Simulated assay, not measured.
Amino acid sequence: MAIKLIADSGATKCSWILLENDKKTKVATSGLNPYFIQPVDISNVLSQSLLPKLKNKNVDEVYFYGAGLDSLENRKIMKKVLNKAFLDATIEINTDLIAAARATCGHHKGVVSILGTGSGCAYFNGKKIVQQQNGIGYILGDEGSGAYLGRKVLQYFLYKTFDEDLMNAFEKKYNSSRAEILNNTYLKPFPSQYLAGFSAFLSENRGHYMVENIIEDGLNDFIVTHLYKFREAWTMPLHFVGGIAYAFKDVLKELCNTYELELGNIQKQPIEALASYHQ
């Protein structure tokens, strides 16, 4: 039986599962998004963080799904790097939207969305994606994502929109100055991950009306801006993948009920379902 390696990479981390007969080996590494990390650094992550844990297994097939692979050039980069790491393996490169679709829809039709550090959505016909809303990044878009919600948290803090309780809670948790926040946002690498980290503040302060407003407004922006572009959204289940979708699934359910949309599967991470798909 072929030894298969499946990977699901976001902007922040990459989850791997090695399938060998009935045995599963799980490995986690840093995210491998070609938009943010150079090929040599991707190779270093593979050689230092992944391959030693696979114990020199002779992998036959690699299925790599990830953020930043919507461009042909980035897919070529990733395939070239993986070919060097797994010399005898067949390599298949796919986007994170394909990962979400295969994980939630299997071989059935559906509209699938990613709400993680970034966001995106697509209509899947059971075999391939035939329409998608391409993300435009954390500065111009990514509505409903962790970066989008985290940015709102920082706005409320820096503009002193939060009431006294939330201002105190923020200061106690993060102990960050205005200068430090601006420096991390505008000058340091990986600002989208930095912004997304502040979405945790929302999870920890559920029930406060300001927090609930930020969550609901952010997810509503995603539905109206993106899901409304698909006529299939009104007739087929809406599936979601990602930490934000999973953390705030109650809000998604409420919004779908309000708009009379059918809520489908919500998965925090698609890697287990992808392993089953390829098994």
Rank of each mutant, 00 (worst) to 15 (best):
I114M: 08
D60K: 05
H208S: 04
E20F: 00
S203H: 01
S145G: 10
G242D: 11
L238G: 05
K26A: 05
G31A: 05
I139S: 06
F170K: 02
A233K: 01
N257V: 07
D163A: 02
N83V: 02
I98M: 14
G116K: 12
S15I: 07
S47V: 15
E216H: 08
L227W: 04
Y123F: 09
G126E: 13
Y148D: 06
L32K: 10
L202Y: 02
H208E: 12
L263C: 08
V45G: 02
A7R: 00
T25M: 04
S176F: 07
L32I: 03
L5G: 02
K80I: 11
I266C: 04
T95H: 00
V40W: 12
V27S: 06
D221S: 14
Y159W: 02
Y65P: 08
L187N: 15
M210H: 13
G150P: 04
K79D: 14
E73K: 14
M236Q: 12
L5Q: 02
Q132D: 06
G126K: 15
I6M: 07
C121P: 05
S145K: 14
F201N: 02
F162V: 08
A179M: 12
K80L: 08
L97P: 02
G135M: 06
A247C: 12
L154A: 09
E164Q: 13
I244R: 03
F86A: 00
K80S: 14
A100W: 07
E92I: 02
G218V: 06
R231I: 11
S176P: 13
E171S: 14
L227Y: 03
D22C: 03
E260S: 14
E204K: 11
Q279E: 13
S276T: 01
Y148V: 08
G197H: 03
G207L: 01
I91C: 03
A28L: 12
L274W: 06
D60F: 07
S71F: 04
F162L: 07
I114N: 00
G144K: 15
A99T: 15
G110A: 09
H108N: 14
L154M: 07
I6W: 01
D8Y: 03
D96K: 11
F190S: 09
G218N: 08
D88M: 04
